[in-house]
Amino acid sequence: MLEKTICAGFGGQGVMSMGRLIASTAMARNLEVSWLPSYGPEMRGGTANCHVIVSDKLIGSPVIYHDATCLIAMNLPSMQKFEAELLPGALLIYNSSLIEAAPRREDLRAVPVPANELAAGVGNPKVANMVMLGAFVSLTSIVELDDVILEITEMFGVSKKQFVPLNEAALRRGVEAAGAAYAQL
């Protein structure tokens, strides 16, 4: 097993924490993980991305270079920038609330998820990243939904536990949306 996921979007869309949740949930399952953030000039320009690798073997380079198995794109510049990094047949989950254009490549399993709308539907547009993460969980077999919810619960701790239900609801919306969209492919 070797899954290489790029999470990308605007700063503030929660792409770093989305990637971190994938990594920490997989780590809890005793898989090898690496999480590499962008910290360079692009970060200062307002876009953010992280590379998450999950494997059952020792991870070599934490950099994903033309061999991504999945891209989670929260906005158009991110989809356009990282589409080229995907392997043929790889999974592209894109935020169709903000991305109207279709992906340029036709050799991908492209799944549109209206993350902002679905997030607003559960009460807060800020959890669009959790909607996307839900879609990711449903479309891949890297981590289980229940494990992600457990990680979120642990992450928020006792003092912020009131945020767990909102995030969980967003995750479940993402799972449903991905299932519906994928059935149409």
Partner: peptide, 10 residues
Amino acid sequence: DGMIGQMMEP
């Protein structure tokens, strides 16, 4: 290096 400093691993 920057990679070792910035990346997360278990």
